[in-house]
Simulated scan of single mutants.
Amino acid sequence: MGNRKSGKTLQSPMYFFLSQLAVSDILLATDILPNTLHDLLVKEPIISFSGCVIQFYFFAVAEAGEYFLLTAMSYDRFLAICKPLHYTSIMNQHFCWIIVAICWILSILLILIFTITITKLQFCGPNVIDHYFCDINPILQLSCSDTTIVQIEKPLTAAFFLVTPFFIIILSYIYIINTVLKIPSIAGKKKAFSTCSSHLSVVCTYFVTLTIVYHVPSIGQSMNMTKFLSLLYTAGNPLMNPIIYSLRNKILKQIVKNKLKSLCFNSD
């Protein structure tokens, strides 16, 4: 009975969104890290222009997908805490699939349009990227053609993929905090906040680092600091996300314990 109950719980919307978040993390890590490790072993690492554009495209798709999924998860938490009676009727499996499909389709298509604009630029040297992967700013620094269109598209894209999700998440948590504060018991408040703590930790890490990387450089941020922060959200976050969500989740802890016990008994 315990295994059946756990399996049913793991099919909840929160875990469905977590599975999609894991897909985004895997895409991001496999797009950046293998090439980075290869570059560390080679004295003069080389990447073709097409390879650089492809790397940037999948990196941007993974990041955009992450923003949208985190936004969807904040909406899930909003419904669970603020509208508990309507939660199961709204967040059904069909609706969850629609949300996820919209997240990925928007990410793939809009980043594709932005990437096509980049491919129309001319690059006539120098051809050395001062970064450990092909990001938008290092690529634009190498262009010898007019980058006005791309510079216009950058803030528009950022507003859609970064600013809009951020404000939706903030709005969701304003309602969540307001609802939690109305709960009379301290235990009830702690339980409600604990369901959001993991998601809130991941959101803060992502949005703070990305804001610093893509907006602070204009006021004098060093390139080394940019590289460090970029490493944090391209390698650190995909590594920490499963740890953050797993360590604070009693169901996952219990499932791991059950699996370990069953393995020990089977070995005996």
Rank of each mutant, 00 (worst) to 15 (best):
R4K: 14
S6V: 12
K8S: 09
T9W: 14
S12L: 05
S12D: 11
S12K: 13
A22W: 12
L27D: 02
I32Q: 03
P34Y: 05
I46H: 15
I47T: 14
S48H: 03
S50G: 09
G51F: 00
G51T: 00
Y57F: 07
E63A: 13
E63R: 05
F68H: 13
M73L: 10
S74H: 06
F78R: 15
Y87P: 04
C96M: 09
I98E: 08
I105T: 03
S107P: 01
L110N: 03
F114T: 01
T117L: 15
I118N: 05
K120A: 06
H131T: 14
Y132E: 06
F133H: 02
I136T: 11
L142M: 05
I152C: 14
E153Y: 13
K154N: 14
K154H: 14
L156Q: 05
F166H: 12
L181T: 03
K182W: 01
S185H: 11
S194T: 08
S201W: 11
T211F: 10
I212P: 00
I212R: 12
I212K: 08
V216W: 10
S218K: 15
L229I: 12
S230Y: 08
G236H: 00
P238Y: 07
Y245V: 06
Y245E: 13
K259R: 10
K261G: 09
N266P: 04
S267R: 15
D268P: 04
